[in-house]
Amino acid sequence: MKKYTNEHEWAELDGDIATVGLSEYAIKELGDITFVELPEIGQSANKDESIAFIESVKAASDIYAPLSGEVVEINEELETAPESLNEDASATWILKIKVSDAGEFDTLLDEAAYNTFIASL
């Protein structure tokens, strides 16, 4: 089950590994993605800290860690094919985090709450 942040990341938790991506809404707002700067494996971040960076033709944005922890995997395909995010944002993960506090997942927005949030923007 995907949960969301106010900064438009999504996360799926499997055990203590969170798979992280960006919402369809965020990708649509950014437009055609041209570049994703991925973190190093082993880099750690607290929840809501910048962990990666994304650029489109006309915009740029930080990607924030939806959960605290350590980066254990990055989607290297995005280095050569960042446009796959435009094709299917919800199926295209960006990085995986080994979370230090799985309880943080409960504080994220569920899909209904996220949809209400973006409708208000």
Partner: peptide
Amino acid sequence: PVSYTGVIKEH
């Protein structure tokens, strides 16, 4: 309008 279907496609 900043874009309709995508900046690259329109370009």
